[in-house]
Amino acid sequence: MPNTLLEVKHLKKYFNTKAGLLHAVDDVSFSIAKGETLGLVGESGCGKSTIGRAILRLHEPTSGEVILDGTDVTKLNKQELRELRRKMQIVFQDPYSSLDGRKSVFESIGEPLVIQKVCKSKAEYEKRVYELMETVGLAERLVNAYPHELDGGRRQRVGIARALALNPSFLVLDEPVSALDVSIQAQVLNLMQKLQKDLGLTYLFISHNLSVVKHISDRIAVMYLGRMVEFSDCRALFKNPLHPYTKALLSAVPIPRLDVKQERILLEGDVPSPVNPAPGCRFASRCASCMEICREKQPELQEIEPGHFAACHLLND
C-alpha cells in the first residue's frame, strides 16, 4: 500500500499465567496509511489494548514485526526506542488514573519535552506548553491546576496535550472517551478530528463503542479473543458485515431511535477463556452456524470483497 505509515505483521503477544499460556493477541496483521484512522473494536479481553501497547512496546511482543515509517520497532534497543517514541504516542482510557496526581497541568504536559530534551531554553519550553494547551482547548488559567481539580473532559485534554508534545505522527488512542459523559465525549471526539486534520496525524483508535468507532474511523478491524475476524472499510462493515460475530455485535448496539426496529442476534454464553484456546475458530463455541470444520481448523483472514476481509469458514466455498 502506498503511504503506509505503520505496518503490523503477524503480531503475537502471549502472557504466561498460572493457568497456562494466555493468547492475548494471536497472529494479527494490518497496516495504517498516513493520515488514516483505523478503528479497533471488540469486547473486553479481545486483545485490542494489548495490540496498542505492543505497537509502542509497552508490552514486549512475543513475535511479529511492527514497522513504523520503515523502522522495525521490535528490533530497536532502548536508546533507539526512546528516540522513536517521539514519533508515536498513546492516550490512555482513564484520565482519572493516567495523570500523576502530584504534577500540575504545566508539569504533566511539559514532562515529555523535558525527558526528550527538545527545548533549548526555558522560555521555549514554556511557550510550547502554552501552545499545546491552546491546541487542545485548555484555558491558560488552568496551567497550575492539579488533576483532582479538573473534570474528566479536561483531564483527557491534558492527556492528549501530553501525547502531542513531541509532534508525533502516530497516536494510539486507547478508549479515549469511554470514561466521559456523552456531551463531553462529543467535545473530545471533535477535538481529535480537528487535530488530525490540522496536524496530519494517524490514529489507531481502540474502542468498544461501535457508534463512536464508526464516527471517527476510515477503516475498522473487529477483534475476537485475540484474533482479527473482520477488517474493512468503515461503511462496508456497517452496511454488510460478513463475520457472524460482527453481525451479532452490530445488532446488539442499542440504537437511540424509535423508527428503527432491530433484529437482535443474541449470542449464547460468554467469551471463552483466552488461556490455551481450543483449536479451530475462536468464535465456534458461540456461533449459531458453527460447522464441523470450525472446531478443527482456524479460519484465515480472506479478501471476500475488494478491501473487505473476514475470517470465517462459512465464507469459503
Partner: peptide
C-alpha cells in the same frame, strides 16, 4: 443536545454537535 452528541450509526456525519 444529548441526542446530537451521539454519533449516529446509520448516517455519516462530519462533526458532532457537542453541548
Amino acid at each position: 443536545g444529548l441526542f446530537a452528541c451521539i454519533p449516529d450509526i446509520f448516517t455519516d456525519q462530519n462533526e458532532l454537535e457537542p453541548i
